[in-house]
Design a protein around this nucleic acid. Structure first.
Lengths: 219, 219
DNA sequence: ACCAAACCATACGGTCCCGTACGGAGGTCA
DNA sequence: TGACCTCCGTACGGGACCGTATGGTTTGGT
């Protein structure tokens, strides 16, 4: 929350979109209101309506920035991991918040999900989701699954991610944390990769051998 | 959407809560507004403020009704299936919308999830989620898993359900439907029950009571 | 120093909603 | 039939926002 800093500097459009994303994470789409934002930035609406035509223009800018900064960056980060199973595991760890960056890390995403029907939000969300599911499916293809099967697993992985984020947001006391969360990630990873070639890459495939993971879906 | 019916009947509190749930599914929590509701019911605020102290009282009543009608009824319906694996499968089919009751069936739930931080919504949601996860975990215990392991699977099943609902709501074009959806349910069921005893037939294998078997077969 | 553009404050009208005050229409029962 | 309690319509004040109009204040180029 960037409150009015000492120097009453002049504001740029960027300042407004940053504040908008901040408000989005805090108060949802309805929280992105011009007048409160102006107060928070130590300015008035006069400033805002110089930089933007209206509230929608601000939303468009904020959404574009969010869409740019997320997804691509996360995928790029994950791509630095060469081992494919470990990559999936890393992705899940990031998504499920093993590194404790949940509370506000994806607050914007939750807010967007909450107002997914909004005409400006919907397309941005659709692009991001499609990209993510597609990337996940690709991961399972690399693990040796047929495309259709891989897509199903990608879907499951993504919905599990979405639902987990929802659970953490709505009822954090019901979501696992700490060691239980790491165990949970192990479990989910194992189930998602069940029936997959061991892929003799190099080590670092930690935590397999959950007792009898031997399942194979019907052919 | 129950618009003013011909007879200008007098309204009961129940009429208002029903309309509130309707508005909740349509326009979210913010859609539950007294004045629009009054217009929709062909009445005015004067009526509303006779039956309820304020808007919050309406929300409390609506949430209570929703909480009562869901969860318990769904679980009771599922309990009519004696075979445990089939029961899990039926539950997933219901949750993932195989029977095509998604579009508005759980619109209220999505709206509540969207505003999970609201002080009145939060506890209701927490109770429902806890009950569902607990029931799912019990199912996996009946399938022969240890309690901790069963709880993790229950969590995965529930988050997958939540995420799927979210996906259908936000970007239906990315969610499976028809035959692909049935296939997806197969897949998820298989993965969730992997590493489980085949359980040769026979419904009540584990005589684990679980707070008494309630019987209210009402399909 | 000067000027034009960029930037911003103030003030205003409009919309949508909440909640209160109060009085009038219906039923109900003596 | 008339007193009376239920239920509801009308009217009002207030708050939170959006967007516009208008004129003032910086700022950078010359």
């Amino acid at each position: 929350m960037v409150v009015a800093q000492g120097k009453r500097r002049r504001l740029s459009a960027q300042d407004w979109t940053t504040a908008a994303l901040d408000a989005l994470a805090t108060g949802g789409l309805a929280g992105v209101a011009v007048e409160p934002l102006a107060v928070q930035l130590g300015a008035t609406k006069g400033s805002f309506y110089w930089h933007f035509a209206d509230r929608d223009a601000l939303l468009v800018a904020a959404l574009a920035q969010w869409e740019r900064e997320h997804t691509d960056d996360v995928i790029a980060l994950v791509e630095t991991e060469p081992d494919v199973p470990a990559r999936l595991r890393l992705l899940l760890s990031l998504g499920l918040g093993v590194f404790g960056d949940h509370p506000d890390g994806n607050g914007v995403e939750l807010a967007l999900l909450a107002t997914a029907r909004h005409p400006l939000v919907r397309p941005a969300l659709a692009r991001v989701s499609a990209r993510r599911i597609s990337y996940l499916a690709g991961l399972f293809v690399e693990l040796g699954l047929a495309p259709v099967e891989a897509h199903r697993r990608g879907l499951l992985a993504y919905t599990a991610y979405l639902g987990h984020a929802q659970l953490v947001h709505a009822t954090p006391e019901l979501a696992p944390s700490g060691a239980a969360l790491r165990r949970y990630v192990d479990e989910v990873t194992a189930m998602l990769t069940s029936g997959t070639e061991p892929l003799p890459n190099n080590g670092a495939t930690a935590a397999r051998d959950r007792r009898g993971r031997r399942g194979r879906p019907q052919p």
